[in-house]
């Protein structure tokens, strides 16, 4: 709960971030690489790009595009296995958006039985920036996410007159270490039960009644079967386990996989239960809006709009869901 508040000027915010890096913390934030905004470790405050939505989501911090589970090596008749232990201790992720936090919240639900990833999710400290304006294709408000507030973060930065209002909880207190005289208690925002959103979620669940609808053929026409939507999505968790190496040594890796690709469901026999883009696109839309309502209790689309920007045909997943329901 963000129960404390402090005011920073532009200068103070910068020196705070630079101070964190100086103290040896790993600070990850949105930076521009090759013209693409993405989350990466920063060396000073000026690298941060805080007025853009990143192309790739912040899930990369916890679930990198490929990750080594363990390495193995054989020597004579012995096999050695070494587990890869990378923790996110001392890591601060800055520049998250409320939708990214919702994404992490979903990941916590999804990985509730995976202690390694769950631990990673719970160790890093998140610093969120409230969105002032909508980015191209964002629809988080349609799904009941407040773009100005998030209670799933440790520090929340809001632009105010001559500087920033910073709200934080106890974990945030550790990295902010403010002087006691500056701290004011923050007004605790109680979650307001939102009837229209509950109705909308229930409405989206009706997609399951449309499972055999002919309209899926029309909405899937534009889908080319690449994985860009899944790879930029903050809540897409699918991965593929791969063994790399030879008989003597190698490693087991988890690599991102995407339900849009044909190989995703292909059996060894050659049979593919989702033989065409119609079934693949339907699965994607149904998974985001329907299936996770049953398994995790909430819809897994956070409305960040990244997939719309990344898609070669710029398909709008939310509009397509509504189109099916019409």
């Amino acid at each position: 709960m963000l129960n404390k508040q402090i005011h920073y000027s532009n200068q103070q915010l910068q020196s705070w971030v630079d101070g964190l890096i100086y103290k040896g913390k790993t600070v990850i934030g949105p930076v521009k690489k090759n013209g693409v905004t993405c989350f990466s470790e920063i060396k000073n405050f000026n690298e941060l790009i805080l007025n853009e939505r990143t192309v790739y989501s912040a899930k990369e911090v916890v679930l990198p595009k490929y990750d080594i589970l363990f390495k193995f090596a054989k020597e004579k008749d012995k096999v050695f296995i070494s587990k890869n232990e990378n923790s996110l201790n001392n890591v601060i992720v800055i520049g998250l958006r409320p939708c990214d936090n919702e994404g992490f919240d979903y990941l916590r639900l999804f990985f509730k039985s995976d202690p390694d990833i769950l631990q990673k999710l719970n160790t890093f400290i998140s610093v969120t920036i409230a969105c002032e304006k909508k980015f191209d294709g964002c629809f988080c408000e349609e799904l009941g996410i407040d773009k100005n507030y998030s209670n799933k973060t440790d520090v929340l930065i809001k632009t105010s007159e001559n500087g920033y209002d910073i709200y934080f909880n106890d974990r945030g207190n550790e990295i902010l270490s403010p002087q006691a005289s500056d701290v004011k208690p923050a007004e605790i925002k109680k979650p307001v039960p939102n009837v229209s959103i509950d109705n909308k979620v229930a409405y989206l669940k009706k997609l399951s009644e449309q499972y055999n609808s002919e309209k899926w053929k029309i909405v899937s026409m534009g889908c080319l079967g690449c994985g860009s939507c899944a790879f930029v999505c903050p809540t897409c968790t699918c991965f593929d386990v791969q063994d790399e190496g030879n008989t003597q040594n190698g490693q087991r890796l988890i690599c991102w996989d995407a339900c849009g690709m044909g190989l995703f469901t292909k059996h060894a026999s050659g049979h593919n239960p989702r033989p065409s883009q119609v079934e693949r696109r339907r699965h994607r839309i149904m998974h985001k809006f329907v299936y996770t309502q049953d398994t995790e209790g909430k819809i897994s689309c956070v409305g960040c709009g990244r997939c719309i920007a990344a898609c070669p045909a710029h398909l709008n997943i939310y509009n397509q869901a509504l189109q099916i329901l019409q």
């Binding site: 390495k71 090596a73 096999v79 050695f80 296995i81 070494s82 232990e85 190496g245 190698g250």
Partner: peptide, 25 residues
Amino acid sequence: LLKKLQFPLDNKTADREIKTEPVIS
């Protein structure tokens, strides 16, 4: 290329985060 485990598996050659334990002998 992805780094592989190199013998001998002492602290110098193995990554710091990597703990090594023989499982089959």
